[in-house]
């Protein structure tokens, strides 16, 4: 198993072949607010057609990174290219290629659902006929056709989010940027949004998203980075990250205080385990199937054994304490 510890800055060097050139490319990307460094010189590449995720706790620098990519926030250092365009030199051209779904709903409450799409299309210089055609198609795709004439305030949270995504797609962007796309949604709405985002990916859309939901990252992202305190700790596919940093299965032991020293002693005699002691529970990360190990450790039959997941990676890398 790879090292579980340490903060590593990972740089992917890509070959400069034109057709496989990354859609988004950041080098030494830095964002400072006064003396506070939100993004501390990160490198990443988003390939065409993939869903790339920024995972991290609140304040990790995810949103700052996204806002710089959307030309909504000036860079404090480094460089950032979208489809070969420098975000600092050609913000309008960059923004013409983007569909942006911001964290807060910023739909226009004074106009109807359909008008939200049509008026937005004006900023991309779409002819009215074309905008109307696309708006109707987007409303159908996002199951909002029946709401077309209603005011935005009459929509549920899930519908608003779907409308925001539909609005971002009206210009047929090269890149869809989503900042915490399902925060605040109920489970049904989240699953519907996920299904639609997966559908977009299947059609070849490149997606860039931030989230602090592990299941969301695992479901949607082809590759992701985990950010913490402005740095990229690791990057890779969800599965690679889980294998590298959390192993295969996790045994969550919760020994009685009297049994704890004995369990810790036994753990030292089993090879290939990583143990995290949170004070009460013991998380035992295994390279293989957990059940035989649980038996060897003399753990009760009903001990919780589950597959390792991104949450384990995340918590191992960013710590279990509250971060804000």
């Amino acid at each position: 198993m790879h090292s579980f510890t340490g903060t590593r800055s990972v740089t992917l060097l890509t070959t400069p072949a034109a057709d496989s050139a990354p859609l988004v490319s950041a080098r030494g990307l830095t964002k400072r607010y006064g003396s506070f460094t939100a993004v501390a010189g990160i490198d990443f590449d988003v390939r065409r057609g993939e869903c790339f995720g920024f995972l991290g706790p609140n304040g990790a620098g995810k949103s700052s990174t996204i806002r710089m990519a959307c030309c909504l926030s000036p860079l404090s250092g480094g460089e950032l290219f979208v489809d070969g365009l420098d975000v600092q030199r050609e913000p309008r051209a960059v923004k013409a290629k983007l569909g942006v779904v911001s964290q807060d709903d910023n739909l226009d409450p004074d106009i109807t659902v359909r008008q939200n799409l049509l008026f937005y299309a004006r900023y991309f210089d779409l002819p009215h006929q074309e905008a109307a055609r696309r708006a109707d198609r987007a409303l159908a795709l996002f199951q909002l056709t029946e709401k077309a004439g209603e005011k935005v305030d009459d929509l549920s949270g899930g519908m608003k989010r779907r409308l925001t995504i539909a609005r971002a797609l009206i210009s047929s962007p090269s890149l869809l940027v989503l900042d915490e796309p399902t925060t605040g949604l109920d489970p049904q709405a989240r699953h519907l949004v996920w299904r639609q985002l997966r559908g977009l990916k299947e059609q070849g859309m490149t997606l860039l998203l931030t989230t602090h939901y592990m299941d969301e990252a695992a479901r949607l992202c082809d590759r992701l980075v985990i950010m913490h305190q402005g740095r990229i700790l690791v990057q890779g596919t969800p599965l690679d990250l889980i294998r590298a940093h959390a192993g295969y299965e996790v045994i969550e032991a919760d020994p009685a205080p009297a049994e704890r020293p004995e369990l810790l002693r036994r753990l030292q005699h089993v090879e290939g385990l990583q143990v995290e002691d949170t004070g009460d529970a013991l998380y035992i990360f295994t390279e293989g199937v957990g059940a035989p190990i649980a038996v060897r450790l003399g753990l009760p039959e009903d001990v919780l054994i589950r597959r390792a997941n991104l949450e384990d990676v995340f918590l191992r890398l960013t710590g279990r304490g509250l971060l804000d």
Partner: peptide, 14 residues
Amino acid sequence: NHGTYQAVASTPAS
């Protein structure tokens, strides 16, 4: 309140 300025600034408009 409505975030309209930010929404429009996310398009080619400034």
